[in-house]
Design a protein around this nucleic acid. Structure first.
Length: 259
DNA sequence: CACACTGTTCGCTC
DNA sequence: CGAGCGAACAGTGT
């Protein structure tokens, strides 16, 4: 669920709601969601305020008035929710930052694959976790260089966060459908023209999805997302969409359309 | 109800 | 050392 466009939408939501309010306390029901002790989080953040956000791929960084930067990853089922009345505390708000304003920032995580961490340098953190430049900003040159070294399936490569940070399962399927490329094509056997097509479609899908705030029903009718299920009918060929596993993930594609 | 589903990380092989 | 691959992780919706 939360891929680049979703996280970008979260980022804007946080900018609108959760900056410049003093953090008075932090609550976390499940330590496993914190990459450092709760005490470390408290020392770093209580008394400070969030000042700005930055997103790289699916990672969201929240700068503060202090030395530390909060790092958030939403996993597969996470989202932020800002709320006031404690009675309306959202379900699955496993981590909550309480503000002096009486409002609260909830980190919701239904399946607990997401987490929060702390860092003092976004650049160092990016290096440590092996994230590429955000896919939205990635120059064509970098894209071609990264792909030229890879021999495995193209879908697995464009989902690799060290190549195209932010691209996940649905985006990879969407990009390859629009590019008419089969997900199991070997990366090193693609022509430069095909790679350029994939790159252009990647950029287009990212911008469209951000513009629509990642709400799929607002995506153009001919987008793959609407038919991304087994047996659905391809917009172009009328053939049935098929399913396979690539890079360990469920993959949907249109047989004759994608070669 | 058994299974699918998300993204990252870990452990293993080559 | 690093690419590639598959399993593991958590928990809920179907």
């Amino acid at each position: 669920m939360p891929e680049l466009p979703e996280v970008e939408t979260f980022r804007k939501y946080i900018d609108r709601t959760s900056l410049d309010q003093k953090i008075v306390s932090i609550e976390c029901a499940d330590q496993r969601l914190l990459k450092k002790d709760i005490e470390t989080f408290e020392e770093a953040l209580v008394g400070e305020s969030f000042t700005a956000t930055q997103r790289i791929g699916k990672y969201l960084f929240m700068k503060t008035t202090g030395d530390h930067i909060l790092v958030m990853h939403f996993g597969m089922t996470g989202k932020p929710e800002y709320y006031h009345d404690p009675e309306t505390r959202p379900k699955y708000a496993h981590i909550v930052y309480h503000f002096a304003s009486g409002y609260h920032f909830g980190f919701l995580n239904r399946r607990k694959f997401g987490w929060n961490d702390l860092t003092t340098s976004i650049v160092d953190y990016q290096k440590t976790v092996g994230l590429s430049i955000d896919a939205r900003d990635l120059p064509l040159e970098d894209f071609l260089t990264a792909l030229s070294k890879r021999k495995t399936y193209i879908k697995a490569v464009i989902m690799d966060q060290s190549v195209t940070a932010g691209i996940g399962n649905w985006m990879a399927d969407e990009i390859l459908y629009q590019s008419k490329i089969h997900p199991e094509r070997k990366t090193n056997q693609l022509s430069e023209g095909e790679l350029k097509t994939i790159y252009d479609n990647m950029k287009a899908v990212i911008e469209l999805a951000i513009e629509k705030e990642a709400v799929y029903r607002f995506f153009p009718k001919n987008y793959f997302i609407h038919i991304r299920k087994e047996g659905a009918i391809c917009h172009h060929t009328g053939a049935e969409i098929q399913k396979l596993t690539v890079g360990g993930r469920s993959t949907y594609y249109s047989p004759k359309w994608q070669n």
